[in-house]
Design a binder for these strands. Structure first.
Length: 603
RNA sequence: GGGCUCAUCGUUCAUCGGUUAGGACCUCGGACUGUCGAUCCGAAGAGGGGAGUUCGAUUCUCCCUGAGCCCGCCA
């Protein structure tokens, strides 16, 4: 046996009945132990699988194994034996054999683990799981998620290379960027009082690579933003499949993403995907129909504009709303009258009020032909008839109404659309599918609700449709940009734009948003400078890697697809980051901590 | 910055203001030569911190601390 590899000749998912009789060596963790007094069974686990080890009482190491804690790492040498037919375990790929241990080495004894690894359904606090992440990652579910992530990233890379894209690295220590999210700052030791920033995205670098003539760029790019986390938003840092293309039209960029993302979802999930080209929904239509710029298209419910109808109808509350610039929308829900109870309808209305709305009107067409509901009595028989044909209503259907200022109306209608679908007795949503769509034509500018100022609504790098002419001639709020998102099942997967590579257009756009030429040249110095020397028209996009894997793993929490995530407060509980540093370190960085409770604490 | 929910053995979940604070898993001890979430017997092990209400608080109230989710934020 001296010629065997010191740790293993096979993995724990390799041996089959054909291997019977071989002398083998396996290493792994003691996953489970079944102690029958006279005989021990150890489920030996490694990355690949599980193999049963049998330890007979005559062996010198019998006592060692019997007393060992689970999760200890051992190396076992022994003979592959066929199991008796009645002891075959059909649940294990290696279930037809077992290893009869002749030698055993305790490589690394484990203490009692704070979480019990075999219990996949255990529901420890996330705090506990994050603190002992290296243990949680041993569990099959999480281990698989991280492997899925690894394979997805590999596949994304392969596809990008195959499409002629080149992979580049861009700096991690860079300059603080104007606009956008809060930067993570890194103090400079050499330059007193100056700071680097971690990139929120390699946005300017990838554009500069286009100016440098590299034509097609991609990177699995780390992005850092010092903003609050959510269940679907990783705190601090996340990864994007960052893409930029020279001389590309919006349609060409869409085609690349449709190809790459579709292929990825088809490869790594059994769920169906809607075929490319994906629906392209204008931002304004998305807000009108779905009340959201990230609609879940598995939900078939759609709002439509009834402002014109209610302007003419003699229901004063809605007519007044429309007169004052508001919006009235209708949502037809088929076949729920007589299915859902009065309480159900009351709950929908209560939901709207909880979310700041005035209420939720509706008219039900009962199975015996009556039109009922809080609003029905305000409409004349002719108007009710018009409403029915407008909404394509049938007996058993209910028409909901939302009336408010446009922004508020969209917001509430989006919430209601989801709330109704979530609570219907007969679920109308599709399941087991990924529904992709493009949201296009985002507004270039919007009005700051607090100051009333015109501000960039998405990002100042994108090209306004109509170019300089539009900026000069159109009301700013009517201008749309070559700015687009990919949305899948209600999750924003990706965001991108055809860039603005023309200095004059930059100046004008920033002027409308209240910035002078100087500011443009100062804040976007490199980009502005680069555009003076021949810049190719270019555009790009950046699908979120974490979110793609999250959808593929069918988990609601993005931390389930990140090996070492931070908690919602952007703390790494395992590494204890962030943490205090020594006075010496602070001195080198010319930093003094402000305030009373933030005194420098030396660990 | 704000809102909601939560905090009990190592873990997880119970417990009407009066209980020897209970179960499951883990742990420890014992039995057991074919199990595979082994089984059986036994044992150990808990109210985050601080105020208050009360004859009496794990339970009610407030503050602090910590956690999760949401809003703001995330061009």
């Amino acid at each position: 046996m001296a010629d065997l590899h010191p740790y293993r000749t096979h993995t724990c998912n390799q041996l089959r009945k054909e291997d019977a009789g071989k002398t083998v060596r396996l290493s792994g963790w003691m996953f489970r132990l079944r102690d029958h007094g006279g005989i021990l069974f150890v489920d030996l686990r490694d990355h690949y699988g599980i193999t049963q080890i049998v330890v007979h009482p005559s062996r010198s190491f019998f006592g060692l194994v019997e007393k060992a804690h689970l999760e200890s790492v051992i190396t076992v040498t022994g003979e592959v034996k066929l199991r008796d037919p009645e002891t075959i375990n059909p649940d294990l790929p290696t279930g037809e054999i077992e290893i009869e241990a002749n030698e055993l080495v305790m490589e690394s004894a484990s203490a009692v683990t704070p979480i019990y690894i075999p219990d996949e359904k255990a529901d420890e606090s996330e705090e506990m799981r994050l603190k002992y992440r290296f243990l949680d990652l041993r569990r099959e579910k999480l281990h698989k998620n991280i492997m899925l992530r690894s394979q997805v990233i590999r596949f994304l890379r392969e596809q990008m290379w195959a499409k002629g894209f080149n992979e580049f690295q861009t700096p991690i220590l860079t300059a603080s960027s104007p606009e956008g999210a809060r930067d993570y700052l890194v103090p400079s030791r050499i330059h007193r009082g100056q700071f680097y920033a971690l990139p929120q995205a390699p946005q300017m670098f990838k554009q500069l690579l286009m100016v440098s003539g590299f034509d097609r760029y991609f990177q699995i790019a780390p992005c850092f933003r010092d903003e609050a986390a959510r269940a679907d938003r990783s705190p601090g840092e996340f990864y994007q499949l960052d893409i930029e293309m020279s001389y590309a039209t919006q349609d060409e960029i869409f085609a690349v993403v449709e190809d790459v993302v579709s292929a990825t979802f088809r490869k790594f999930s059994t769920w169906t995907c809607n075929a490319a080209p994906w629906p392209r929904i204008k931002y304004r239509d998305a807000m009108m129909v779905y009340g959201s710029d990230k609609p879940d298209l598995r939900n078939p419910l759609k709002w439509f504009d009834m402002s014109d109808f209610f302007r003419r109808a003699n229901f004063k509350a809605f007519a007044a709303c429309v007169e004052h610039g508001g919006l009235v929308k209708g949502l037809l829900v088929k076949g729920i009258v007589g299915v859902e109870t009065r309480t159900w309808f009351d709950k929908r209305e209560a939901f709207v009020k909880e979310n700041g709305g005035k209420g939720l009107g509706y008219i039900s067409w009962t199975r015996d032909g009556e039109l009922k509901g809080p609003i029905a009595k305000f409409l004349s028989p002719e108007q009710l008839e018009e409403m029915k044909s407008l909404a394509k209503m049938e007996p058993g259907d209910c028409l909901f109404f939302m009336a408010a200022d446009p922004d508020e109306c969209h917001r509430l209608s989006g919430l209601v659309r989801t709330n109704i679908a979530d609570n219907m007795t007969n679920d109308v949503r599709e399941h087991g599918c990924y529904k992709f769509c493009w949201i296009v034509d985002f507004p270039f500018f919007e009005k700051d609700p607090e100051t009333g100022k015109i501000i960039f609504s998405h990002n100042p790098f994108s090209m306004p449709q109509g170019g300089l002419k539009a900026l000069n001639e159109m009301p700013p709020l009517d201008i749309v940009a070559y700015q687009y998102d990919v949305v899948c099942n209600g999750i924003e997967l990706s965001s991108g734009a055809i860039r603005n590579h023309l200095p004059e257009v930059m100046y004008k756009a920033f002027e409308i948003a209240g910035y002078t030429k100087d500011v443009v040249e100062q804040k976007f110095g490199a980009l502005h400078s680069a555009f003076q020397f021949g810049a190719p028209p270019h555009g790009g996009i950046a699908p979120g890697v974490d979110r793609m894997v999250m959808l593929l793993a069918d988990t609601a929490n993005i931390r389930e697809v990140i090996a070492f995530p931070m908690n919602q407060k952007a703390q790494d509980l395992m590494m204890n980051a962030p943490n205090f540093v020594t006075e010496q370190q602070l001195r080198e960085l010319h930093i003094k901590i402000r305030g009373t409770d933030g005194e420098t604490r030396v660990p």
